[in-house]
Design a protein around this nucleic acid. Sequence first.
DNA 1: TAGAAAACTGACTGAGCGCTCAGTCTAATT
DNA 2: AATTAGACTGAGCGCTCAGTCAGTTTTCTA
Lengths: 202, 202
Amino acid sequence: MANTNAKKKDTILQAATFLFARKGYRDTAMGELSKMTGAAEGTIFYHFKSKQGIFLSILRSLKADILPEFERYRNAESEHTGLDMVEETISFYLYMTKSREDLFAILNQRYAYELAETNPECREILEAIYNCFVDIFESAITGGQRDGSIDPAIPARKSALIVFSMVDSMVRFRMNNLYDVGALYKELIDSCRRMLENRQRS
Amino acid sequence: MANTNAKKKDTILQAATFLFARKGYRDTAMGELSKMTGAAEGTIFYHFKSKQGIFLSILRSLKADILPEFERYRNAESEHTGLDMVEETISFYLYMTKSREDLFAILNQRYAYELAETNPECREILEAIYNCFVDIFESAITGGQRDGSIDPAIPARKSALIVFSMVDSMVRFRMNNLYDVGALYKELIDSCRRMLENRQRS
DNA sequence: TAGAAAACTGACTGAGCGCTCAGTCTAATT
DNA sequence: AATTAGACTGAGCGCTCAGTCAGTTTTCTA
């Protein structure tokens, strides 16, 4: 093998992501992680200093993986109106949460928020990710207010938070198998449009 | 003492609600519950057959406690338009979730949804509660469509789900200490109004 | 007030947990 | 061929936990 470094480390991180997402942090045993990866339990603690350390590593790579993708999306030039960009961003968010289901399941863990209360790095990562999403919605809204597609009277930041919270709620419904979110997609878009659009277009 | 039945049983149930809400199901130890209530650990298992049994009992009494209150609210006559009733219902929901914070924290536990996948009673309770909320929003919306305050073209059930998901998201933000929801309240109401209102009023 | 039933007790159990450590293996370097 | 360092191992330690049980106390009933 060419690469001597960290042969099993990545495997462990990947399996831990899978298990933490499916069963939760507390209900995932190191023994299970060991069985799944084929690594001895000792190996896991050779690479990571603790179970919590694994969780933090996942968050770290989650941030490194997702934030750039969102920055790229945000900086891509677009011919669309701000209102259309809000719709696009919703689609993009739903697509992202579907294609990285495990990562977003981890973001919805209670443990993440408990850890955030004592661990500044954890809190910083969570905030960075959420703020990034809300920022994208906000700049779509202010853009829309400039181009006339979105009502200039509404407060951009707060509305961005509300749109984000709507979409985030849908994602959680999907994760909990409560409702068929696909069936709600069109109505979600329509609702956001009614919420934001400028009614006396120039 | 007059009441022979269940002297400590209620105390245990109450303390368990508190602990499950604050620390989560998995992170609550029976020993802690014993210390908090002053009941011996054996007493807990005399009244409840297992830890899971306690959780189910909490859900059961949650249902018995909350559903009637919502039914009463739903059946109360009102002079308001449907659109105003949607706003009222949002207030009512936010008020309820604040005054029974522990109960709603338990409804947001991942463990509840895990249990629901194997335990039909649990699933039935969760669905009953959520459906009740959504039903109230739905009947406010159909009422509004009848009285002309709400756009007749929008699908009532789906919009009810979306409004509910918005409010539910706010509640979760509040629980996770992520945002100051009070600051968003006015904007939440305004957004819902813009989303639903009838624009060519008779 | 005797006796039965119900409520309660806390020391105990065994399974499972996160984590350690003394040591082996592998592959590159000298 | 000998040395070395990093990757890896798995038995096992200390501890926590949900749940048990043999026995005591309280309450109800006849």
